[in-house]
Each structure stands twice: as structure tokens, then as C-alpha cells.
């Protein structure tokens, strides 16, 4: 599973992209957030408050109950500020 981080989340996690193999019990985006928080203090800090972040699965906005599979591209980022 490819996991991407943008803007200030990338700074806190310490990388913009990682290839990960979550355990089988990680079935949803919410499960993934919980698992990622255990990976490092940076991950825990970046993903501490899900009201401050947005997520996409395969480049479409997704909510915490979105199901995941091993080939998905998942991204975490702050609310967007383009335009």
C-alpha cells in the first residue's frame, strides 16, 4: 500500500511517501490511521486529530469507514488551500 503525506503532515511524518504492508486487521481508512499512529511519534503527531486532516483513497476524497485493499494509494493532507 502506498501512503502519501502532503503539506505540514509530510513535515511531521518526516517523509512524503512510504510503501507499507499493514496487518490484515487494517480493513478501513480509520484502521489505517490507528495503525500508522503506532509507527513513530511523528506519525502519531501528524494523525492525532482527524478533524484537522483530509484523506483520499486512489485520488478521491474518502471517509474513515472507507474500505482498503493492499494495492490502494492512500493520501493524508490538510484541508486544501488552492485557487
Amino acid at each position: 500500500m502506498k501512503v502519501l503525506y502532503f503539506a505540514w503532515l509530510r513535515g511531521k511524518v518526516g517523509t512524503g511517501e512510504e510503501e507499507l504492508f499493514p496487518p490484515p486487521e487494517v480493513k478501513t481508512l480509520g484502521d489505517l490511521v490507528g495503525w500508522l499512529r503506532t509507527r513513530s511519534p511523528g506519525h502519531a503527531q501528524a494523525l492525532a486529530d482527524t478533524s484537522l486532516i483530509r484523506a483520499a483513497v486512489n485520488q478521491d476524497y474518502a471517509r474513515l469507514d472507507h474500505p482498503l485493499s493492499a494495492s490502494d494509494e492512500v493520501a493524508f493532507f490538510p484541508p486544501v488551500t488552492g485557487g
Partner: peptide, 11 residues
């Protein structure tokens, strides 16, 4: 909509 949905971030 672009401001609210297109994934851009300003530093």
C-alpha cells in the same frame, strides 16, 4: 469548488 476540492496547499 476548485478552492475547496483541488488538492493544493500554500506555504
Amino acid at each position: 469548488w476548485l478552492k475547496n476540492r483541488a488538492p493544493f496547499w500554500k506555504l
